[in-house]
Design a protein around this nucleic acid. Sequence first.
RNA 1: GGGGGCGUAGCGAAGCUGGUUAUCGCGCCGGCCUGUCAAGCCGGAGAUCGCGGGUUCAAUCCCCGUCGCUCCCGCCA
Length: 445
Amino acid sequence: MKELSTAQDLSSYIDFAAHEGKEITLVGQIQNLRVLAWGGFVILRLPNYLVQCVADATKINMPLAELKPEATVRVSGTLVKANIKDVAMWPREWEVSIASIEVLSMPSEEALPVDTTKKELSCDLSTKFDYRPLTLRHPRERAIFRIASTVYNEFGEALARLGFTRICSPKIVYSGAEGGANIFKLSYFERQAFLAQSPQFYKQMMVGVFGRVYEQGPVFRAEEHDTSRHLNEYISLDMEMRLENGFEDIMQVEAAVLKSIFERLQRECAPELALLGVTAPSIDKIITVTFAEAHQIVLDQTGRDCRGEKDLDPEEERVVCDYAKKTWGTDFVFVTHYPSVKRPFYALDDPANPDTTLSFDLLFRGIEITTGGARMFRYEDYLRKMKARDMNPQLFESYLQAFRYGMPPHGGLGLGLERLVAQICGLANVKEASLFPRDRKRLEP
RNA sequence: GGGGGCGUAGCGAAGCUGGUUAUCGCGCCGGCCUGUCAAGCCGGAGAUCGCGGGUUCAAUCCCCGUCGCUCCCGCCA
């Protein structure tokens, strides 16, 4: 038996200022190497740093030329002041003056398939994904996923502060939530099951328990779309809450959560944002336009009359966003009151106009990142709506239990993590905001 | 499900109204360089031009097919 210490500091945080002038030992992978006649530089990649180390050829224990990018090394030396210009580096005020280097591992290939030492990764999307274990090591790729990590964490933490309870619903399910046909089938012992395309039913059931819940997890869509804004598996940031005043409550909570996310990005991800050349957006006001007003904006701005249509197409969403930016100075527009026919059966119709629903989409820089709205909460309403849509209530037995036993007025939303991150980072394709994207063609790596 | 574009060394690209020794940058290999920061300089190796067929004296280039990638629409987050 061996007992390990529970007292040691397990943090990867390094207090560089406190180490100045002192001995320091770092284990990291070589991001880049610059060998000069007098010695050279080793850029070391650590969990959340990129540290420059400098070597004097006459003092170091081995020639730098024997090293190569992606070798894992243990560097010992002294932390000294430096002035580093490269914005990919962090920190930039200190470097390690190397005393010795020990090689722990070397890449087995003579040459790496893509060059990760340059400012930009110059390769096609498919190449980038084919070599994901390598390409993700590039500083810009790391920056994207440090930002994604922060967005994911703050979504949960901001909601938790507002009294929401985190839930984890099953991803193996008995029936398809939205009623759509685009659901992955799965063999489950002697029966057939499905991969959840949304935690919708479970988060509604859980509103009957906690009143305010959230979930962050993967959802699966078997849609054959093949575009720069779709994935077949993505991370859905979901919440569901009792409504005190109206479906506007949902938008207010979402705006508050987004605001909190962007402020935290500014505080904690400044180097990553700078590296990507972007700034965190801000959401200081909540701008809403109705679906009908959105069509009017498109008509006024472009002359295209789409007022009869039941949805906004991507081009119209871009027009509405451009208009909102120009007119109200905002990157975010909530479009409310979508037609009932375009919304799932559980959407709550607007009593003032039953052809529309008390629902919304949130558009961010030209793309829709959220769909949300109020849900029906009376059992009879579900039976009526399901009958009208030729749905068999018996197939939704366990879901409908919640309403049979009584439910408060409630609503919620789903936010696509990759879409949000892609828009923050200015990425052309959502897949770039996914570590290992799953699309129509890709199941690997 | 429908439509557009692209496949040329490990990576990214140029070339083509048909005839070249198929070009450039990065990476790789060798040499040089006292502070680099997308380091720099000199030299070298590396490509049956995605695959199959056709037209032609001649195809990387034109045509047909096929496979792969990418973008857009529908649908969605």
